[in-house]
Design a protein around this nucleic acid. Sequence first.
DNA 1: GTCCATGTTCTTTA
DNA 2: CTAAAGAACATGGA
Length: 268
Amino acid sequence: MPELPEVESVVRTVRPRVVGRQVRRVLLTRDDYATPANFAWSGLVGSIIDGVRRRGKRILIDTSRGGVLVHLGMTGRLTVADPREPVAKHTHARFDLGEIEMRLCDPRRFGRLHWLGASADDADVGPEPLTLPAAGLATRLKKTKRAVKVALLDQKLLAGLGNIYVDEALHAAGIHPRQAASSVDRQQVGRLSGAIKRVLRRAIDAGGSTLRDYVDADGNPGAFQKLHRVYARAGEPCRRCRTPIARVVLGGRSTHFCPQCQPSVQPT
DNA sequence: GTCCATGTTCTTTA
DNA sequence: CTAAAGAACATGGA
């Protein structure tokens, strides 16, 4: 559920509610979700939350004692609630912040809660798509012959895109998802770079996409799914040319595109 | 029962 | 070395 726009929306709604607050208690309701396994989370009690940031799809919570990383995986929800509200099933962590409580719920448990301390944990992900110039994207795409769809899902190449926004950006740029990343020409990269930024900004403005699980810190869903042009629209008419949207599997993921607007570069 | 799912990582195979 | 494909993780919805 959470790609860059969803994570950004979570960060923007969590931040104003928790910054400046003191951690009074940390409650982990299962012992195999948080890492490192031997970290004593009770050591955070008394610390002050200084900030909440996003890096790619990761949420970084800065405290006076060090950093906490939250990755939402597929079904993670980071919410801020009244402590008296009933605790949802699959809530694995609760941070008592006084009058409010920050909760991490994740049914599928693909996400994680990780104590960073003073380490940076940044080197293993690529640049931020909203600020990377087209030339930078061009350089990175040139290095791999993988399908451009697969390449854009690689967090080391670019941090933050997932299955929805890659499909949406490729459609907006008129690029076939199976085209080799290294063969994407200068003109296409220009369109792609603009499309990625535009799609992400619009999705953030809409509060992200809610297909099933995603909600922001206040429990509100996003609205961008209503504006999807290809994602989960297989068989439905392209909003631009009315051609039925096609669905194929690439890199093990459902891939949606318009055969008319995103012509294959391979000679058939 | 089946298939599918907004993510990541590891293994196998070529 | 590259990369493609598959499986794995765990849960729930259609």
